[in-house]
Design a binder for these strands. Structure first.
Length: 475
RNA sequence: GGGGCGUUGGUCCAGCGGUUAAGACAGCGGGCUUUCAAUCCGCCAACAGGAGUUCAACUCUCCUACGCCCCGCCA
């Protein structure tokens, strides 16, 4: 079994494409087949090396690897379409010789004009095959005019039935289609031609791709047949949509894997979430390791309807994976985000902080904001907290008195702190929340956070006392 | 304009002729906590509409509506 993922490097790895790559990858692994990466960079104007690099990086980040591909190599390369132009020309030549394709001299402008007219008349916009039977002289004449021809494929008139692995039998009537272009006038192949030539040469057995290609599949099948090649199996997976049900685009926010990566999504979480989009098990299991997914995945269980990408659920799942991470690992992962905000600290200290804050982290990008008060000399005070908690009349005295109490405390562990402060509160005949709340605001600047005593322990005696002193001035 | 594919709560997804239509996210309420979070408990909420077929239809057929895709010298 040989499968492939064939992105165009015209942008970073899109979520929808990532999902296509994932499904291909899962099935290839499940059947111990080969997974091939092919770069479809025939659109010279829009393709960029930078995007190719980015896509490869993001796939690796996601934990998807391949057996054959650019750089990596393989027996059926090259794996970049821009390096296979000669092959496409040879195949086109073959079709031309067999009278299965022909030169078409119609200009873009003429084509556009005719389609417009057809549409205005309420007819279907499609090529009228007028260059099919051009005489030699007409061809020469056109060339003399300076026209650069394209090569079109001569469509045989018939019904084509696809047995799609996800949606079953689908049929098309080719009489409703016009002869389509296989080679552009600049000598490069069109997508529809290049995929077929490559899939033949790369011995692809199963094509899993987006539903947007379902309508192109009859064209591909005609080409496979014209080239006397074995037709692979097809599986067209439903689209990934934005929150409003329209095609996922920039206006919906982040659409590329790279953006989610920057936000601090974990690859394991992203991988897991993506697998659940358009696929599910009987048991409605939600959490899967990569190995489990490889074992469980099947095309029969793929949904036919489109799915909306839900950032909320992804975020929830990411939090779940974050909570499962070892503190050391989490510190390591958070470092770039801290650095970006100019924050840092001793590894040991950071680890203790992360242990306290871990269950509050949903995305790595939130870490700096979440733990900032542990790392800076001068903490920021939440104005509302100051107003509502610190400004209360009795607070100043409580803090001053408590500070004295803590100055004499040698064991600054959470347990000891809790015992001491609770006793102190009791002796002063105060309610715990009237002490705990101001204390929290005084040492963290906020009203929310991890356990108070754990926080104090991690901060350490010196910082706590200093902050209490600082807070008195805010009362 | 033609063709293709699809439609279960706000979202993901289970169900494959007979179920109180399950689970998850989100939302709401509650327990636990000094607070938030985590966690636990509970609640809200769906078969797009209409005709058939059938003793019985979310499940099968047809029509309609809506959405997405293709009809590009984009992929």
């Amino acid at each position: 079994m040989r499968l492939r993922f064939a992105p165009s490097p015209t942008g970073y790895l899109h979520i929808g494409n990532a999902r296509t790559a994932l499904f291909n990858y899962l099935l290839a692994k499940k059947h111990r087949g080969k997974f091939i990466l092919r770069i479809e960079d025939t659109d010279i104007a829009r393709s960029e090396k930078e995007f190719e690099k980015g896509i490869i990086e993001d796939l690796r980040w996601l934990g998807i690897d391949w057996d054959e591909g650019p750089e990596k190599g393989g027996d059926f390369g090259p794996y970049r379409q821009s390096e296979r132009l000669k092959t496409y020309r040879e195949f086109a030549e073959r079709l031309l010789k067999q009278d299965k394709a022909y030169y078409c001299y119609c200009s873009k402008g003429e084509l556009e004009q005719r389609n417009k007219e057809l549409l205005a008349r309420g007819e279907s916009p499609r090529y009228d095959n007028r260059c099919r039977n051009l005489t030699k002289n007409q061809g020469i004449e056109y060339k003399l005019e300076g026209r650069r021809p394209v090569i079109r494929f001569k469509i045989p008139e018939r019904m084509i039935e696809i047995n799609d692995l996800i949606r079953g039998k689908v049929s098309f009537d080719t009489r409703l289609m016009g002869d389509f272009i296989i080679m552009k006038s600049d000598g490069t192949p069109t997508f529809n031609f290049a995929v077929v030539v490559d899939d033949i040469l790369m011995r692809i057995t199963t094509v899993i791709r987006g539903e947007d290609h379902l309508s192109n599949t009859p064209r591909h099948i005609m080409l496979f047949e014209a080239l006397k090649a074995k037709i692979p199996e097809f599986a067209h997976m439903a689209m990934t949509l934005g929150p409003d049900g329209s095609r996922l685009s920039k206006r919906h926010g982040a659409t590329s894997v790279r953006e989610y990566r920057r936000l601090g999504m974990l690859p394991e979480a992203f991988f897991n979430y993506l697998a659940l989009l358009g696929w599910g098990t009987k048991e409605s299991q939600e959490l899967f390791t990569k190995e489990e997914l490889i074992k469980e995945f099947s095309l029969e269980r793929c949904k036919e309807g489109a799915a909306i990408f839900d950032i909320e659920k992804l975020t929830w799942m990411n939090g779940l994976y974050i909570r499962k991470k070892e503190p050391e690992e989490l510190v390591r992962l958070s470092l770039p985000y801290l650095k970006e905000k100019g924050l840092g600290g001793e590894e040991d200290y950071l680890r203790k902080i992360i242990v306290l804050e871990r269950e509050r982290i949903k995305k790595l990008s939130e870490v700096p904001e979440l733990i900032e008060y542990f790392l800076v000399e001068k903490i920021k005070f939440d104005p509302e907290a100051v107003e509502k908690v610190l400004k209360r009349p009795e607070v100043k005295e409580i803090l001053t008195s408590l500070k004295q109490e803590l100055e004499n405390l040698s064991d600054f562990s959470a347990g000891s702190l809790e015992k001491t402060i609770r006793n102190w509160t009791k002796n002063k005949d105060l309610k715990t929340k009237d002490v705990f709340h101001p204390l929290r605001v005084a040492i963290t600047g906020r009203t929310v956070g991890p356990g108070l005593f754990e926080t104090m322990e991690v901060l350490g005696k010196e910082r706590v006392l200093k902050r209490l002193k600082g807070a008195e001035r805010k009362c």
